[in-house]
Design a protein around this nucleic acid. Structure first.
Length: 107
DNA sequence: CTCGTGACGGTAT
DNA sequence: TATACCGCCACGA
């Protein structure tokens, strides 16, 4: 085991995101805190932005602290993320918000 | 090397 | 209670 080169900041973030169970969501700040970077939620968003579609990382399970998808309403990513989460069992309010009180992943 | 940007969060008002 | 502002760090040009 050994030869473990220090994992990139992004790698640690991806590791945490992949730990989110199906049917649950996590906030950027929560991911940052669990990954070991409290207060650096922006880096989490930037890391996910750099993710390829075939990465296998459930980026769609990550939402902002308001429980809403961070993409612009008319964007393709917004529609895709919302559609996937609904298929996972997540319920969206009329305003497009998720009740974190019920669906936020607890570490 | 420097500057600006950005899938956000927390605190102040 | 909601809204606005600033700060945080990594990456690209």
């Amino acid at each position: 085991m050994s030869s473990t080169a220090p994992e990139s900041t992004y790698a640690k973030i991806y590791r945490v995101v992949m730990k989110i169970p199906e049917g649950k969501v996590a906030t950027y700040g929560q991911i940052a805190r669990i990954a070991g970077f409290p207060g650096r939620a922006r880096q989490v968003g930037y890391a996910l932005h750099a993710l390829p579609e075939n990465s296998g990382v459930p980026w769609f399970r990550v939402v902002n602290s308001k429980g809403e998808v961070s993409f612009p309403l008319n964007s393709e990513g917004y529609t895709m993320q919302l559609g996937i989460l609904e298929a996972e069992g997540i319920i969206f309010s009329p305003g497009g918000k998720i009740d974190l009180k019920k669906f936020q992943w607890k570490k």
